[in-house]
Design a protein around this nucleic acid. Structure first.
Length: 309
DNA sequence: AGTGGCTCCTGGCGGC
DNA sequence: TGCCGCCAGGAGCCAC
């Protein structure tokens, strides 16, 4: 699942190729992917030059400039299985959309589960579009004081708190589980019971875990590959995520799995003890079997996508 | 307002 | 062997 680190890896890869190129055309093969009809989308972006690439939480932004002074902002969310690829090998299903650039570069969007989305925005609407998103983890706004305020008096489990994009932008299921393990905090703890020192640990753990994800070029658990078709390696050093029943790398205790907020949640019951009150709603879930099983499922072989189209 | 739960969507997999 | 139903999850939406 593309989370902040995976989207950041995609952004950095696109940054080596796209800036300076001009949008020649866009073809939409799945009308549900975009907020605009194909012809209207084309009208808003064709002829424009790529000025830069930004990221906000799990959203990727492509800044488009001339010839119209006001510019345009393309926003992509990969959701569960979205992939942006430079002119990949032909596949069974067509790309959901394809953007072609001059000189000859193609960017294809594949998305098995069709949750991914594309928006073409007036840049003046950017603030409103992202208004509900919490602070960027690597920004100055996300400091320990902010985290403590955000946690205060929340009855929701810590895991649900971390997944709430209104509180912190960009954290998803994998990095939430891994950050809680690193912070030695139980995912079922009510967020409001976290003390000052624990909040400090959680803040540090979030930044360290997300940075490790970026350094390892993302987690290729479901289907993540970068625009050049390369897999990340963070899945190889996971401590708890999808390691149900396997020994904790620190203490050897079997990793447990529960469902919190409808999401599979993995933790070490010894390293992440249930101190400080458990949020009432989490229920125990059946194990999903040995970790690694899902690595094989749906993770396509790294394609030989051209580096820059 | 805060919180939980349902829905979308698809391919893989277990069970019968 | 083949079919059916369950499962995974990001985020929007709705109900309480």
């Amino acid at each position: 699942m593309p989370e902040l680190p995976e989207v950041e890896v995609v952004r950095r890869r696109l940054l080596t190729c796209l800036p300076g190129l001009v949008v020649r055309d866009v073809r939409v093969h799945d009308a549900t992917v975009c907020d605009l009809p194909e012809d209207e989308l084309r009208r808003t972006i064709a002829g424009r030059r790529v000025l830069g690439l930004r990221r906000r939480g799990k959203y990727l932004m492509i800044d488009l400039g001339e010839p119209v002074a006001a510019g345009r902002l393309l926003v992509v969310h990969l959701r569960m299985t979205g992939q942006l690829l430079f002119r990949p090998e032909p596949r069974g299903r067509p790309a959901r959309f394809v953007i072609t650039f001059d000189p000859s570069t193609e960017l294809h969007f594949y998305d098995m589960r069709r949750f991914g989305r594309l928006w073409s925005l007036d840049p003046r609407d950017e603030e409103a579009f992202f208004a509900a998103l919490g602070p960027e983890p690597f920004s100055a706004a996300f400091d320990v004081a902010y985290l403590r305020r955000a946690l205060a008096e929340r009855r929701a489990p810590l895991k649900a708190f971390l997944l709430d994009q209104r509180r912190i932008a960009g954290v998803g299921n994998i990095y939430a589980d891994e950050a809680l393990f690193r912070a030695r905090l139980n995912p079922l703890r009510a967020a409001g019971t976290v003390g000052p020192r624990e909040a400090q640990r959680l803040h540090a753990a979030l930044l360290e875990t997300l940075q490790a994800g970026i350094d390892h070029e993302g987690s290729s658990i479901e289907s993540f590959i970068d625009p050049a078709g390369r897999r990340g390696s963070f899945q190889e050093i996971l401590n708890v995520y999808q390691r149900t029943g396997e020994p904790c790398r620190v203490c050897g205790t079997a990793i447990e799995r529960v469902v919190v907020g409808g999401r599979g949640t993995h933790y070490c019951p010894r390293c992440q003890p249930r101190r400080g009150g458990i949020a009432p709603t989490a229920r125990r879930a059946r194990p999903t079997g040995p970790a690694g099983k899902r690595d094989a499922r749906g993770a396509p072989p790294a394609t030989r996508g051209a580096e820059c189209g």
